[in-house]
Write a protein that binds this DNA or RNA. Structure first.
Length: 412
RNA sequence: GCUGGGGUAGUGAAGCGGUCAAACACGACUGACUGUAAAUCAGUUGGCAUUCGCCUUCGGGGGUUCGAAUCCCUCCCCCAGCACCA
């Protein structure tokens, strides 16, 4: 299947500056950029564009991956409804180096060139920038952009000149990479569309040449209408230290039926044929969650490496009660320790709930207890004290609610 | 800098001297129903105690008052308009 057909089938083509998608079938050079303005790790939200970049690379495109050391110092206003606080420079630098490592690792065996826009911005003077770049942008055009108008006006929350200028910086990046590496396509999420066009326009004006831009749709949770990867259980990071393998895997297993098809297309390299077969099995017996299992296995392996997910599966068995807590060996227990709190010496259920973080306060713990939301070894309890025979082999499994991740091990 | 409007719990948004721990909506949490899904229904949603109750909150600080989210002063931040005549 041609790249253009594959991307169209997956629903990855939203906006593009070229008319004929056959443009994509002659490999050239493209770039995709990511910032690190707020954290030292990418999230699942970055995964879809990253994979799109990889799809291009696999089809023979030369990949330039940009990690925004300069742009992260400013903050992209696109997709944000409030001005962001600036992080200290050292912290941004730390985030950047962490994300560089992550991008390199996640891009797998495909070839790529990693660049950092700080390398060319740090020495660029403000006056030069205004003359070379700023002069080519029309103010009335810029202030009509949606992310600007949303922030200004009566209902707006305001926008600083710094964030307002972001688009020009990104435009400059594209121009720079065009000159330096012959990059003639920029791709990204649709929230980047305006920024990408800035680059296309700049290259046209400075070089008299046509560069192209391609955006993929933002991944939306169809059930909630929310942007993907946010809020549900907090952010899902692509860093084992921030989101454990088990949590990560569980996130994908919990995907709604309505979304699982789209996610398979976005987040895996499944072929059209295999997809059709898997989905027809899934639709016949949705309760088996075959599609979700496939998805979680593939994505977990992608992010955590081949063979990942097996430890997670063992832990899952303990949490769901398939493996009794007393038969857990020391090796599994130490793996478990990374996933859930393990504390000792509590006799009060309420104290245990609070100190493991399963309840936010004593009142909260009491509420949960009264609601029958507290489980000891899988059995709902209303007792405020642990009983001696709750402990099996010196430990018990305490859980809040039916979500298995909200568990803790209590040792005697 | 001037004039006007505004800053209320995770978000939006009421309240404008006591009956305000603060309506309502969304979100979040829990339960029922389920397929580790969605939808639906029910409960909870500052803290402590859980029996009356007590304590800390309404941008920051300081006042007035028996009593303030509500009035006054001041500072910070946001929005709009104005900034030669004005």
């Amino acid at each position: 299947m041609k790249l253009s057909e594959d991307l169209a089938w997956r629903g990855l083509l939203k906006d593009k500056t070229f008319d004929d998608t056959a443009y994509l079938d002659q490999p050239k050079s493209f770039y995709w950029g990511v910032d690190a303005a707020s954290a030292d790790s990418l999230t699942v939200g970055n995964l879809a564009p990253l994979l799109l970049a990889q799809r291009l690379a696999r089809a023979g495109w030369k990949a330039v991956l940009l990690v925004g050391g300069a742009t992260s110092l400013i903050g992209d206003p696109g997709g944000k409804d409030t001005e962001r606080p600036l992080l200290p420079r050292e912290q941004v630098a730390g985030n950047i180096s962490a994300i560089k490592g992550q991008v390199s690792r996640l891009f797998g065996d495909s070839q790529f060139q990693l660049v950092d826009n700080y390398d060319w911005f740090s020495s660029l003077g403000y006056l030069d920038f205004l003359r070379d770049v700023g002069k080519h942008f029309s103010m009335s055009e810029l202030i009509q952009r949606e992310y600007i108008t949303e922030r200004m006006g009566e209902s707006g929350t305001g926008i600083s000149y710094a964030e307002f200028s972001y688009s020009l910086i990104q435009g400059y990046d594209f121009w720079h990479l065009y000159k330096e590496f012959g990059v003639n396509l920029q791709m990204g999420g649709s929230d980047q569309w305006g920024n990408m066009l800035s680059g296309v326009a700049l290259i046209r004006k400075k070089e008299g040449a046509e560069a192209q831009a391609l955006s993929m749709p933002l991944v939306i949770n169809k059930a909630t209408g929310k942007k993907f990867g946010k809020s549900e259980e907090g952010t899902i990071w692509l860093d084992p230290a921030k989101t454990s393998e088990t949590q990560f895997r569980q996130f994908w297993i919990n995907v709604d039926d309505a979304d699982v098809g789209d996610y398979l297309k976005f987040f895996t390299f499944i072929s059209k044929e295999e997809f059709g077969q898997l989905m027809s099995e899934h639709n016949a017996h949705p309760e088996n969650r075959q599609a979700q299992n496939y998805l979680s296995q593939k994505v977990t392996e992608l992010v955590y490496g081949t063979g990942a997910g097996q430890a997670a599966e063992q832990i899952q068995k303990v949490l769901t009660g398939q493996t009794p807590i007393d038969s857990v060996d020391s090796q599994l227990l130490s793996a478990l320790r990374k996933e859930i709190p393990v504390i000792a010496g509590k006799t009060s259920v309420i104290e245990a709930l609070v100190s493991t973080g399963l309840a936010s306060s004593n009142s909260d713990a009491r509420r949960l207890l009264a609601a029958g939301a507290v489980y000891i070894n899988g059995q709902s309890t209303q007792s405020e004290q642990f009983k001696p025979d709750d402990f099996k082999n010196g430990r018990l499994l305490l859980r809040r609610g039916k979500a298995y991740k909200d568990s803790a091990v209590i040792e005697q």
